[in-house]
């Protein structure tokens, strides 16, 4: 039941101009860019380093000659240049994005995080530490309704990265104070991450448990 008119009035031309502008604006901003991934600290994490090693191998197989460190430096230079050029190109559209809500950023699951971290909270009571929360644990569920929510998952995911350390400190302080209020017997609270390498299919099938290390410990005392 689509109908169309043979004559195009001024409104049709104005609308076409707006549509062309809109499509240009959103396409330019959506094009691939590293965005928030431009952090040299984040690039040093095991997950990202493993990607550099894998890609260096691939690039060298095509006749290049890079070490992973050289490849990383080259990518950093390229990405920095791209981000500068992108800023200039997008600048004229800034007001449009801001007032219409049409900003674009679709960097979703660009790579699996092979070295993720599980958040844990513990409290000290009578000189003994006791776990009260652990990510996705069926047993340690203190305020799990917060941490199971997707918005808080997003925050906790970020706080495991080293360049979010200052925010993680504030987060630990916040939940530490809350725990000390809710557990009157507790004398201290600890927030920490258990960082580990995710199991390969073979390792998981064999019943192996992930091997990792505790780190990023923050202790809040009463």
């Amino acid at each position: 039941m689509t109908t169309s008119r043979s004559d195009l009035g001024p409104w049709a031309w104005a609308r076409a101009a707006f549509i062309a502008f809109h499509l240009t604006a959103i396409t330019l901003m959506a094009l691939p860019a590293p965005g928030g991934g431009m952090s040299r600290t984040a690039w040093k994490t095991p997950t990202v380093q493993a990607e550099f090693r894998a890609w260096t191998g691939r690039v060298n197989a095509m006749g290049m000659d890079y070490t992973p460190a050289e490849f990383e430096d080259t990518l950093w230079d390229l990405a920095s240049g791209l981000m500068k050029a992108r800023s200039k190109v997008l600048a004229p559209f800034g007001t449009y994005y801001r007032y219409t809500g049409t900003a674009q950023s679709w960097r979703m699951f660009v790579a699996p995080h092979r070295f993720p971290a599980r958040l844990e909270f513990r409290i000290e009571e009578n000189g003994k530490w006791r776990t009260i929360y652990a990510t996705r644990s069926p047993d340690f569920r203190w305020h799990a309704e917060h941490f199971d929510h997707d918005r808080m998952r997003s925050a906790v995911f970020r706080y495991a990265w080293p360049h979010y350390a200052a925010h993680y400190n504030r987060f630990s302080e916040y939940y530490g104070r809350m725990a000390l209020r809710e557990f009157p017997e507790a004398t201290a609270f600890e927030s920490r991450f258990f960082a580990y390498r995710t199991l390969s299919p073979e390792e998981a099938a064999s019943g192996m448990d992930p091997d990792g290390n505790y780190g990023s410990s923050r202790v809040i005392r009463r």
Binding site: L31, P32, W55, R58, R107, M108, V110, A111
Partner: peptide, 11 residues
């Protein structure tokens, strides 16, 4: 654009 940015060697 999300597909274009899935550049991991696992993807």
């Amino acid at each position: 654009t999300t597909g274009l940015q899935k550049v991991s060697s696992h993807w």
